[in-house]
Design a protein around this nucleic acid. Structure first.
Length: 833
RNA sequence: GCGGAAGUGGUGAAAUGGCAAACACACUAGCCUUAGGAGCUAGCGCCGAAAGGCUUAGGGGUUCAAGUCCCCUCUUCCGCACCA
């Protein structure tokens, strides 16, 4: 054991030292031009909202991405690893109200604070391409895209029922409503209001968004399934029922037109136009419908919308089934949704669970129209919802299979003009208007004479005015800024008013990753050739909470930009990784629970390397991670061991820098073998599995083994050349996970240049291979013994040594070995009777 | 209700169908003393004095061999939830 006074591992000294050096070399994380000849690799983590503080979820997210980026740099790729700020949004306005600080000021101060945290953590971002979405040089392109979409009919205005959050005092997209509540205010019930809103026609891409999910093989199946469900494609038929003694018609949407002869009523959503019309004439009906709506509202407040009891009101009117001419009663029902399909259904209680439940309750006739395909079989019990059967009680269609019948019925409907095959999506157009201040102004002018007039491109950006008064009531804050509102119409030069709504902030994050590739461009959102070089993103890393919102909008935006001719790729992201949450005491960290762990505190106590490495070590990246401070302390102790062992033998290693390790023996061979095995394991993991927790464990094993040989190292039993390879490689393997320590030790070992520019170590399979291995010997599947055989021994050799083994002999004595199964290199199993 | 993921020591966890519990945390015992959130050595699934036996939520199955594959049940978490 070396007895001279040793240096102590002190991250509080090492880390700021390297942070300062890296800050002085801003180009070190910059991507190279396309002409570099290296293969490109775009690694991206989701950009944070500048709340003012990084949290542990961020530390984990960016530790994963940074490890990957560093590894890819060392593998010789041209890496792009950018960072930016999702800087628009409501919290800035709330803060403004609370602290009397302008949103811009508050946001920029938060960005500065979080950028310091990123730098203190040693994250390798190229700050030269930093994107801040609240800056005019960014959001002008939101406006530019909006105008392009307006020209193509992809941005349009309509009056509609919208989701209104009373706490946000603004409209929410469908995607932002969770169980009837606001995604930011769990306790706030969303109200329905009628407002004129801007929409983006994402439904124009519904089919493609769905189809292309199949191509996204690098995405978690879970996310693809969630998106598929969200898009909710449904093939069916629309059928028009005429109403007895009225001019209106009722269109119903059904996926089971084959059951239409079993329709015994027609059900309308309470908000259906015909219900409104009939209510206007019938005070009794009006009252009951109002009650129904009130019930729904209450259920929504109680959070059990979806499970409330089915409830209906007979209107006393009848609809005519166009196939059978049968008269069926028209009801208003609380389980029919106005915003799906046509807001009206035919009710087939014999073959639909919900209709069955409803019919039972109100004694509506239940009729079998699908029977068993096998004439000898007993008829299945109702409700029978399977499509595996044949039509009965269906006139001329009797005997047809369900699918066949559907096609035939559709043909008839089409021919007679009362219906057709249709495809319905659950996905709705994206409402982007927000009655808030801190967002991208929608570049539209309303002129009394010319109507809606787009702001001409050369007048972009429409700047968000500063020094305005933020209030929480009464519509958009911008509507009170007369300098902003009152303009001249670009067409007629007459007086006109600006649109005062701003855009949903998900617009900002839908294309920010393209801007990174050309962040300073002031004549286009980005250069197409440059984007073509970098896209698609090779690896995107973020939380699964964005599986629907951000990731579906981004896919839409990419397709839209492709159709504008800006890019050639149809999907933005090749591989997606969704990391698990960071928990504390088994629960999500939150101020309410008082279980928030601050990254700053962790860094102050244990250092950035320890915090980062722990976040990778404590669990596989895709699983939830319970933050345990003792665990961070453990990783910190491990880093201390690495520091000590490397500094202790750095002089020996430096002495071996020029030499070559010839034919190593004994402990030197043993350590080299472990080294090359570890290198292979970690390299492999970066390529596929991403189990960084076991990578860190493997490095720990390696370091433990080196330390276990301390006496032999001190005695000089390992040649300097081997010491050199050993210690340098340990440092390089650690580098993606603990960049500060790696930099310090690399310098200590006399290494040339930045660690980031070193080639990633290569594992020599010959060196990594053991020359002798242990093979378990089982008798009837139970482990009995182990035998040592030369590596690569064939089955005969292994069998012979297994049978010769003492314990095996003892147990097989007097018995018959019926069978011997040898899996070379793996196991031997004797079947003994 | 539907869909998905998961269930392994006191804890976080590991294990291409082939030695269950690697690596760490906590704990126990000992050593060291520049008394540090330090370092070193050893032990640490359960039963048992030992030999040995048992053990991956529970039950069944496939297999020479199952934590791993199949079926059923239970539990937890996540997503969707009257989508016609």
């Amino acid at each position: 054991m070396a007895d001279e006074k040793e240096l102590r591992y002190d991250p509080a000294v090492i880390e700021p030292k390297w942070q300062a050096r890296w800050a002085a070399d801003p180009g070190m994380y910059a991507a190279e031009p396309h002409s570099s000849g290296k293969p490109k690799y775009y690694v991206l983590e989701m950009l944070p909202y500048p709340s003012g503080q990084l949290h542990m979820g961020h530390v984990r997210n960016y530790s994963i991405g940074d490890a990957l980026a560093r590894h890819m740099w060392m593998r010789g790729y041209n890496v792009m690893h950018p960072m930016g700020w999702d800087a628009f949004g409501l919290p800035a306005e709330n803060a403004a109200l609370k602290n009397n600080t302008p949103p811009r000021e508050w946001t920029l101060a938060n960005i500065a604070a979080m950028k310091r945290q990123f730098q203190r953590l040693g994250m390798g971002f190229d700050w030269a391409t930093e994107v801040t979405t609240c800056f005019p040089d960014y959001y002008r392109w939101n406006q530019w895209f909006f105008l392009r979409m307006y020209e193509k009919g992809l941005a349009y205005r309509k009056k509609s029922k919208v989701n209104w959050c009373p706490d946000c005092a603004t409209v929410l997209a469908n995607e932002q409503v969770i169980d009837g509540r606001c995604w930011r205010h769990e306790d706030t019930i969303i109200e329905q209001r009628d407002l004129v809103q801007w929409f983006l026609r994402i439904t124009a891409y519904a089919q493609e968004l769905l189809d292309d999910l199949d191509k996204l093989e690098g995405w978690p199946e879970k996310v693809r399934t969630m998106q598929r469900n969200w898009i909710g494609r449904s093939e069916g038929t629309e059928v028009e029922f005429t109403v007895e003694n009225r001019a209106e018609k009722i269109r119903v949407f059904t996926t089971r037109v084959d059951t239409i002869f079993g329709a015994t009523s027609v059900q309308l959503a309470p908000e259906h136009p015909l219900v409104i019309a009939m209510s206007a004439e019938d005070a009794g009906l009006r009252e009951q419908v109002a009650k129904l709506l009130e019930e729904q509202k209450k259920a929504r407040e109680a959070g059990d919308i979806g499970t409330i009891e089915k409830h209906g009101i007979p209107t006393g009117k009848f609809a005519i089934n166009p196939y059978s001419s049968e008269l069926v009663p028209i009801w208003v029902a609380n389980y029919v949704l106005i915003d799906y399909g046509t807001g009206a259904i035919m009710s087939v209680p014999g073959h639909d669970e919900r209709d069955f439940e409803f019919a039972k309750k109100y004694a509506i006739p239940i009729r079998r129209v699908i029977g068993s395909a096998d004439p000898n079989a007993e008829e299945p019990e109702l409700p029978f919802v399977s499509e595996d059967g044949v039509l009965v009680n269906s006139g001329e269609f009797n005997g047809l299979g369900c699918h066949e019948a559907q096609k035939k019925l559709q043909k008839v409907a089409k021919a007679k003009g009362f219906g057709e095959a249709t495809i319905t999506f659950r996905l709705k157009d994206w409402g982007v208007s927000r009655q808030r201040y801190w967002g991208t102004p929608i570049p539209i002018i309303h002129c009394e004479k010319d109507g809606i007039v787009p702001v001409p491109d050369d007048q972009l950006p429409v700047l968000l005015p500063e020094n305005i008064e933020i209030t929480q009531q009464g519509g958009s804050p911008l509507s009170k800024v007369s300098d902003f509102v009152n303009v001249t119409c670009p067409k007629c030069k007459g007086p006109a008013k600006r649109e005062t709504d701003t855009m949903d902030t998900f617009v900002d994050s839908s294309w920010y990753f393209y801007r990174y590739t050309d962040a300073k461009n002031d004549s286009a959102p980005f250069d197409s050739k440059t984007a073509q070089y970098w896209f698609p993103i090779d690896q995107y890393i973020g939380g699964v909470e964005h599986a629907i919102l951000h990731l579906i909008y981004s896919r839409f935006w990419t397709k839209m930009m492709r159709d504008l001719g800006l890019i050639t790729n149809g999907e933005p992201v090749e591989r997606l990784f969704t990391q698990g949450m960071v928990l504390k005491d088994g629960a999500k960290m939150s101020k309410n629970r008082g279980n928030v762990v601050s990254p700053d505190e962790m860094v102050a106590r244990f250092g950035a390397d320890a915090a980062r490495m722990y976040s990778l070590f404590a669990a596989p990246p895709d699983r939830d991670l319970d933050w345990q401070e003792d665990g961070v302390a453990g990783v910190s102790r491990f880093l201390g061991r690495v520091f000590r062992i490397v500094t202790r033998y750095a002089p020996a290693a430096r002495a071996g820098a020029a030499a070559k390790a010839e034919n190593p023996q004994g402990v030197a061979l043993k350590l080299l073998r472990k080294l090359h095995q570890t290198t292979a394991k970690i390299t492999q993991d970066f390529e596929g599995r991403w189990h960084f927790n076991t990578c860190v464990a493997a490095i720990m094993e390696l370091v433990n083994e080196i330390q276990g040989a301390d006496a032999q190292l001190a005695a000089g039993e390992v040649p300097p050349a081997v010491m050199h390879e050993l210690l340098q490689t340990v440092v390089l393997l650690v580098a993606p996970f603990a960049p500060f320590l790696a930099a310090e030790l690399w310098e200590e070992l006399g290494g040339d240049g930045a660690v980031l520019r070193q080639p990633w170590p290569k594992s020599d399979p010959g060196l990594a291979k053991e020359d002798e291995i242990e093979i378990p010997v089982q008798i009837n599947g139970k482990l009995v013994s182990l035998v040592r055989v030369p590596a690569g021994s064939d089955a005969k050799v292994i069998e012979a040594s297994a049978l010769a083994e003492e314990k095996v002999k003892a147990r097989t004595a007097g018995k018959t070995v019926a069978k011997v199964i040898v899996v070379p290199g793996r196991a031997v199993n004797l079947v003994v009777k």
